[in-house]
Write a protein that binds this DNA or RNA. Structure first.
Lengths: 140, 140
DNA sequence: CTGCTTTTTGAGAATCATTCTCATTATCTG
DNA sequence: CAGATAATGAGAATGATTCTCAAAAAGCAG
């Protein structure tokens, strides 16, 4: 089952009606594997209102179908939460470039922390910041 | 050497002049061990302008004396970057409560990722989201 | 200490992302 | 199809952050 299908199913189960605008937002997220800004999504969807984009992202986030990630800049990034594509981000502080990575070791450590805390951990977010290869070269 | 002293030294080395407003912002950050919002700092410093607070936070962030953390809400959090108090955060998605934690296992995993990437990793940020004990109780 | 140059600062305007309002339109149910 | 209710879009409202610019302070040379 693809992420898009799962999203549709979950929304249905949660009692949402199926509107065309929400579907379009989901399609954009489904097509992109890494983080997108709410306004980027809005710009790609000429006929969909900004409010709807934000609303949909909020709904998807609450259903844990989408995750909000802070990628340094001014706007928040959103990306689909897909168990089979779970990853985190390296952000270049100079050029803003974004690179995904995954690590079982890291996931295990996070799992362990969740266990021994008194929080019911539902999601996590890891961001490493630094200079990417090309920016490090040109550095002073 | 305390964090406040180190911050003063680094700023001096970086060629900044010593103004009273910047010092006050540093004092607030030095006194707080966890994340503060720019506006919270501004509110505590009656005589310091908003612009100065933001400017100072930006300068401190670039010198890696302060770290910006995304604690879910609308505003960004800032906290001092102190090797001897290194920690990350658990955020309650219901009430917004913030709890710090630390894990050597986690740090080791992050270190390893940095090694094998082509980024020069300068900082990292881990946020776990979920429900805190008291919110989980009252859940539907 | 005095004058000069450069940085720091504060007040308020400007910007930009995000949220809200509300009238309109679309869905679902029977 | 009709009624009830959710989804949507346009634009206003909000709130955080950034910008502008003139006044005040800091560092420095004489």
């Amino acid at each position: 089952m693809t992420w898009g299908e799962r999203a549709a199913t979950r929304l249905d189960e949660a009692g949402f009606r199926s509107g065309g605008s929400r579907r379009q937002v989901i399609e954009v997220l489904a097509a992109e594997s890494c983080a997108l800004t709410a306004l980027e999504i809005d710009r790609r969807l000429e006929s969909v209102g900004r409010a709807t984009v934000y609303r949909t992202l909020e709904q998807l986030e609450q259903l844990h179908l989408v995750q909000r990630v802070d990628i340094g800049g001014d706007a928040a990034g959103y990306e689909r939460l897909d168990p089979s594509h779970h990853h985190h981000h390296l952000v270049c502080e100079d050029c803003g470039r974004l690179a995904p990575f995954a690590s079982d070791e890291l996931e295990a450590a996070i799992e362990a922390i969740g266990q021994r805390s008194d929080f019911a951990v539902a999601a996590h977010d890891v961001v490493l910041r630094g200079s990417c290869a090309s920016c490090a070269e040109g550095d002073a």
